[in-house]
Design a protein around this nucleic acid. Structure first.
Lengths: 143, 143
DNA sequence: TCTCGATCCTCCAGTCTCTGGAGAATTTAG
DNA sequence: CTAAATTCTCCAGAGACTGGAGGATCGAGA
């Protein structure tokens, strides 16, 4: 049984791998809600904050911009709304995610081929550039 | 039959979707080699530059840091070396790529569920946060 | 209870990755 | 041969952090 604890910002940082100044920065730009303070003005966090922050961290690592994360979080915060105006938004994000998966799979196959080639002591030429450069893997119409 | 052309920086920008100042910036930090200049000091590019730049753009969009891209490009530039010291590097990148694919697939499934729920006019709760927050999808041991 | 090392606070300056404007030179379309 | 479009360099600004200075607070041990 976890839960029920109130975390300091340092403990939250340790639990999520996000640095303390970064946590404060996320609060300042509204990605994280303003944390409740103790009598001596220190921020306190609960398990919900841990999940939210981990989500933000992973999404950032995956290359999503803060604005996209903000939208994703807003959908998660309000599960009733997506069925109305946020539906298109969700579909757009879905297409973007699928595009990224396709490109990453192409890159993975190519890097894997490089590694395999090494295992067999073969010398192969490397096509990582061509793979990711290939426009076919890209959903955007703006280039 | 394409090829054989020498591109201006503006044409390269149009072809790749990378803005002109960004192209110059990439050159300044060494991601792109110094472009040959015309008599009047203007940069010229060939098809190889197009591919390299598209690769950089896609890799950045996928969230890879400049340093990782630099390493990937170095491997591509020198296909003989990966079999020696760069093998571990390639495997590390491979693991990172696979981790990203896994996390993106989890996110995709969840967003897809949201969209599907909308299609059926159902109200579902959204678990995108829990999905990406899940440590199981994360390869890093440093958090 | 007192103390001192760890942690927190705010404020602010710096880094990295772009992005865009100013002013001047060059190219190119009409 | 103009006039508009492009390019050049330099430099400033934006977005997303990151870290240090100076000061307050906490918490474990003497």
């Amino acid at each position: 049984m976890p839960t029920m604890s109130s975390l300091t910002i340092g403990a939250l940082a340790k639990r999520t791998g996000v640095k303390i100044p970064t946590i404060r920065y996320y609060e300042s730009i509204g990605l994280l809600p303003e944390a409740p303070r103790t009598g001596s003005n220190r921020r306190t966090y609960d398990d919900k904050a841990v999940n939210r922050l981990r989500f933000i961290r992973h999404a950032r690592e995956l290359g999503f911009e803060v604005e996209a994360i903000r939208q994703l979080l807003a959908m998660a915060d309000d599960p009733g709304r997506p069925c109305r105006d946020a539906d298109l938004l969700a579909r757009t994000h879905l297409a973007e995610i699928e595009s990224r998966i396709a490109r990453l799979e192409a890159l993975r196959d190519e890097v894997r081929r490089m590694v395999d080639g090494c295992a067999q002591d073969q010398v192969r030429s490397c096509h990582v550039i061509e793979v990711l450069a290939d426009h076919a893997h890209c959903l955007h119409d703006r280039h």
